[in-house]
Design a protein around this nucleic acid. Structure first.
Lengths: 214, 214
DNA sequence: CATGATACAACAAACGTTGGTTGTTTAATT
DNA sequence: AATTAAACAACCAACGTTTGTTGTATCATG
């Protein structure tokens, strides 16, 4: 097992992955997300997954090292994207706590609604992660919480917000969009935009802000 | 499968269960809740459960018909108690939407914190329920949502509350206490009472109420 | 002595994963 | 451009475990 990567001579170029392969992997990933979402990781079998994408269970291993790898990739990958997207949207907002909180909630909600299934399992399947990966996911969540908290405290200091404990307030704020995957259905009575606004208003009011103010 | 319960002749008297047996069943139930909570139903094996209560896996079947039965009993039983407790506390409150919403949230939160694990799995393990039982659980949740919604609409009509859509508002309100099992730890920085108050205030503000008003 | 709780052993089914194999696609060499 | 070789992606069958569950024998308790 000395075939270390890229160190010896003739380092066997990684061979650009074909478009076909990439498409296949995406297909598998998407199917896995769907299955994980409505049966849970443990209850989803490789045979189930294989059937959905129309291939044999064993063939899946040409694309992923293991069932667990698939889970980790989905969970951590999704959370990283969420944090990144939220961060960008906050940084793009005006330098006012209210506007920033609004931007944060809005992008959070939009992400959750666009990728409902991924977001849903990131929450419910964390327990299936091994210690290291679970820590990583928690770290990302803390990062998100840190952004919220920073905005909240700044808003409170400036008199825009009003609440007792910043820690509790942070968790309250995050609770609302976090539950979206539980009840929001894109094909439901209300469209995304009709949900984002009242939801944002609820959160802003919750921390004592005037939702009307920009 | 005609052995309907209590209809035929000689309806096998339930024969008062000994105190020992009752205690054992409670013990098993509690252990199951704990395991379901931090590994999930699917990932919990009867052998795991048996080891926790210090007996053999097969012996568990003297107390429960199946693993699934255990899950159903915990999930639906807990939810029924929650709905009942919340209803009582709302009916005991003064006839004001603000007071009633406050009572509802408060009792909801207290229930969740006293029985953190039960409440946590009622949410995350519903997918493991068979269709009928899942419907039953959903029905209970809708009952709870109905109570919230009724209060909200009455409050809006009376000018106490302010929000756009009653459906969304209901879900926002419920989101906050529902996330409690995710982050609240009784041994943490804040005790129960220090959490109930700011959390209730957040929700009340969220629907446009004055948390100060009784 | 009788009843019920327990341990123990065993079961079939289902699980994730691996290995043998075969066309097919991609890359390197002529 | 043609030829050769390597890598790939798929099927199928099988492996070793682990799963929930069920008899049966043993022990305790009232």
């Amino acid at each position: 097992m000395v075939q270390s990567e890229g160190s010896g001579a003739t380092p066997t170029r990684p061979r650009r992955r074909s478009a076909r392969r990439v498409a296949r992997e995406r297909e598998i990933r998407a199917a896995a997300v769907d299955l994980f979402q409505d049966r849970g990781y443990e209850a989803t079998t490789m045979r189930d997954l294989a059937q959905v994408v129309g291939m044999d269970a064993g063939s899946l291993y040409n694309h992923f090292r293991s069932k667990y790898d698939l889970l980790r990739e989905v969970l951590i990958g999704t959370m990283e994207e969420l944090v990144e997207e939220v961060r960008i949207s906050v940084e793009a907002a005006p330098d006012s706590p209210t506007a920033q909180l609004r931007a944060l909630i809005s992008s959070y909600v939009r992400f959750h609604s666009e990728r409902l299934h991924e977001a849903g399992i990131a929450d419910s399947e964390r327990r299936s992660l091994e210690a290291d990966d679970s820590r990583r996911l928690l770290e990302l969540r803390r990062e998100l919480a840190g952004m919220v908290r920073e905005i909240l405290e700044r808003g409170k200091a400036g008199g825009e917000f009003e609440f007792e404990d910043a820690g509790v307030a942070t968790l309250c704020v995050l609770s609302v969009p976090a539950r979206l995957p539980v009840w929001f259905r894109p094909e439901g009575r209300l469209g995304l935009d009709e949900v984002v606004e009242p939801l944002t208003a609820f959160v802003l009011r919750g921390v004592g802000a005037e939702p009307g103010a920009a």
